[in-house]
Computed example of a mutant assay.
Amino acid sequence: MKKLLLLIALLSLVPNLASARRIGGLFGKSERIHKITDVDIKGANGEDLYLAHKTTSLYIFMGAYMTDDGYVLGVKGSINTYYDLDEEQIKKFQASGALPTPLPPYKIEFTEWLWGYALWILLAVLAIIWFFPKNKEALFARGCKYYFGKNTPVNYPKAMRYFEKSAKKEYGPAVFNLGVMHLSAQGTEKNVDKAMEFLKKASKLGYVDANVTLGNLYYNGSEVTKDLGSAEAWYKKACDQGHADACKMVTHIQQAS
């Protein structure tokens, strides 16, 4: 995931580094002149000009804002040098035939808007990835992060919220963890009945640890009434799923009875 985020960041930066060199850094303003057509107009110093439109991008390490500044007269042979054109000047040049009537339309490319707002697009992508995981595995993993304190303090209530979101998507491990948390009063008040509901649901979803835990509960009789018949049944389910210790418990109960 970290490699993916790094790749997105690098791809977003590539087209902006050239602009950054033009403006002398990664913070500031960059103006771009886009040629539309040649015109028979001279500049104040006798330069040949062409009709163009101008965009301005503001940078905060990456493109943060872009504006369409309308028509300008670009200077041939010079990069991004131009003369402003206001409505009065346009009408004057059109009246003399130096500019066409109406002016040729132009369209700013989508990719230019994209790079012009690259910073916000990248931040939005990062926010979606980090704060709005959608699949059940990602939600469960986020819950485990807070449950076990991986690179962050243990936070049972926060872990439970992510497990609940994952459990709604019928993810067995998340349902099982909710059962354990209700049984152990982690992030919630102890509730054995609710814990049993979650553990049995996790069993129906095929999660082997739920069967083993249920077997242990009925075998030990500390949280629920001791019932070796129920314990054997739950251990047998886990044994059928290949759990070696559960198979040993089945044999142990049968030999003791």
Rank of each mutant, 00 (worst) to 15 (best):
N151F: 04
A98R: 15
W120P: 01
P102W: 07
W130S: 02
P102S: 08
A127H: 09
M160Y: 00
F110P: 01
P105C: 00
M160K: 09
F140C: 13
P133E: 07
L114A: 08
L103R: 05
N155L: 03
Y106N: 08
T101R: 12
K165W: 13
F140Y: 15
N151D: 15
L123N: 08
P133Y: 12
N151I: 08
W130M: 10
F132A: 14
T152D: 01
A141C: 02
R161M: 07
E137Q: 14
Y146A: 01
K134S: 11
R161G: 02
T152H: 00
L122S: 04
P104R: 07
L122Q: 04
L139C: 04
K134C: 08
G116A: 07
Y156F: 14
E109C: 01
L123E: 11
A159W: 07
E112F: 02
P105S: 11
E112L: 05
L103A: 09
L139K: 05
F163I: 13
A141Y: 05
P133H: 10
V125T: 14
Y156K: 03
R142F: 00
W130Q: 11
K136P: 12
G97S: 08
L119R: 00
A127N: 13
I128S: 12
A127G: 05
Y146D: 02
E112C: 01
L119D: 01
L126S: 08
N155V: 03
E109F: 05
I129D: 08
C144Q: 12
G149D: 13
N151V: 11
G116S: 07
F110E: 09
T152A: 10
F148K: 06
L122A: 06
I121H: 00
P104I: 12
K107F: 02
A118Q: 13
A118W: 00
P157Y: 05
I121C: 01
V154S: 01
R161T: 14
E164T: 14
L122N: 01
L139H: 01
W130D: 10
P100W: 12
S166Q: 09
L122H: 09
L123M: 15
T111D: 11
K150V: 13
A141G: 02
I129Q: 02
V154W: 01
K150P: 00
F140E: 12
Y147M: 10
I129F: 09
A98M: 10
P100F: 06
L139G: 02
A138E: 15
C144I: 12
P100C: 11
F148N: 12
I128E: 12
F132G: 11
G97D: 07
W130P: 00
K107R: 14
M160E: 05
K134A: 10
E112S: 07
I128A: 13
L122C: 05
Y106C: 03
F148S: 04
W113I: 01
F110W: 13
L114F: 13
I108K: 02
I128D: 09
P153G: 06
E137H: 11
L139A: 04
E137Y: 12
L122M: 10
A127V: 15
N151S: 12
P157C: 08
W115E: 01
F131A: 03
G97W: 04
Y146W: 10
S166I: 11
P157I: 15
R161C: 00
W120C: 06
I129M: 07
Y147S: 05
P104Y: 07
P157K: 04
W120Q: 11
P157F: 04
P105L: 02
A124T: 15
L126C: 14
R161Y: 04
E109H: 09
K136V: 13
A118V: 05
P100A: 07
T152C: 03
